[in-house]
Design a protein around this nucleic acid. Structure first.
Lengths: 123, 123
DNA sequence: CTAAAACCTGACGCTGACGTCAGAGGCAAG
DNA sequence: CTTGCCTCTGACGTCAGCGTCAGGTTTTAG
């Protein structure tokens, strides 16, 4: 498929796809006239890239880890990188959970105040 | 206390503190000569700001929500904003969990391959 | 009293993941 | 053939959360 179709099928902009190629996250065959050609598997690949971006990895890290993730070409070094990233993600999750809980406390207190007193003061 | 002490006590740079004030996240009294003066409570305030940043909220949202979080001045509108942010955080957590699990799968498979075969191929 | 350290206000720089525009070529339909 | 959409390669714009430098005042230590 061409780049436009890949874009609509993944929900990612054409610009972003070209950017991924520039960052060596995604490769393409070229037609004689120079247009990019993608196999169907590119859809999954793009979604994987999106998932790793969503996990907070910068494109450089993704570029380093993708060969392992996609092809299973793992060296002990790459495995260390992978679990280091996993730890980073875990601690990010911890941050998010505590932030969400804090908001939860605030919401509960403010809602209670709202129902009882109209005028709100925490504590 | 002055801005340098607040910076060291919170682990946040002086520049960042001034930026927070610029974004209306943090206020200060000024000494006659114009230097910023903070009460002890500013330490907690800054840590709260950091926590909300870590949760992925942009400063504009933080500025809107802080009056509610700090003073409990909640309108139904603000309460809606708060739970909307909570939902956003929850879905971010979901993204992170699935990304971490994906890495976990990769690590397990690659490790197994590494131990059994030296040459790695997933699936 | 003086030198160093801390503080002030601009204001420009930086990074990442794209958006956007320009100018030009490619391709299926009528 | 030409109209209209898709694609191409630069290359500059954007935005947030600061870093950093300049040039000047204030506070503190000796």
């Amino acid at each position: 498929m061409r780049i436009g179709e890949l874009a609509t099928r993944t929900g990612v902009s054409v610009r972003a796809l070209r950017y991924y190629e520039e960052q060596n996250l995604l490769t393409s065959q070229r037609s004689p006239s120079g247009q990019r050609q993608y196999p169907d598997s590119a859809v999954d690949r793009v979604q994987l890239i999106q998932q790793l971006y969503a996990a907070g990895l910068p494109s450089k890290s993704i570029a380093e880890l993708l060969p392992c993730v996609v092809n299973g070409e793992a060296t002990p070094e790459l495995l260390d990188r992978l679990s280091a990233e996993q730890d980073r993600i875990d601690s990010r999750i911890g941050d998010l959970v505590s932030a969400r809980d804090r908001l939860g406390t605030v919401i509960a207190a403010a809602t209670a105040n709202w129902r009882t007193g109209q005028r709100c003061r925490l504590q």
